[in-house]
């Protein structure tokens, strides 16, 4: 999956308008990035990338790129 595809997947999962996020977007500035969104991210990483995301790792995410890197 390319980074563009991953970003589209994140936007779709978190119900953010397509084209809003870039690799450099600061997560703290995304209104939709709340606790439900984080939970959604955990499931998406598990189901799509087979990777277990912990609360600790989530807390360390600063930009969208951090999520993309984790997805691998």
């Amino acid at each position: 999956m390319t980074n563009q595809e991953k970003i589209a997947l994140i936007e779709d999962s978190l119900e953010i308008d397509g084209g809003t996020l870039t690799e450099n977007t600061q997560l703290s500035e995304v209104a939709e990035y709340d606790s439900m969104a984080k939970l959604t991210l955990i499931v998406v990483c598990d189901e799509e990338f087979n990777k277990k995301l912990t609360g600790e790792q989530i807390r360390n995410f600063v930009t969208v790129k951090d999520i993309l890197d984790f997805m691998g």
Binding site: S35, M36, K38, L39, I42, T54, G55, E56, I58
Partner: peptide, 10 residues
């Protein structure tokens, strides 16, 4: 319930 725990979902 680690997710709930870690995420501090309410």
């Amino acid at each position: 319930d680690f997710i709930q725990d870690n995420m501090e979902l309410s």
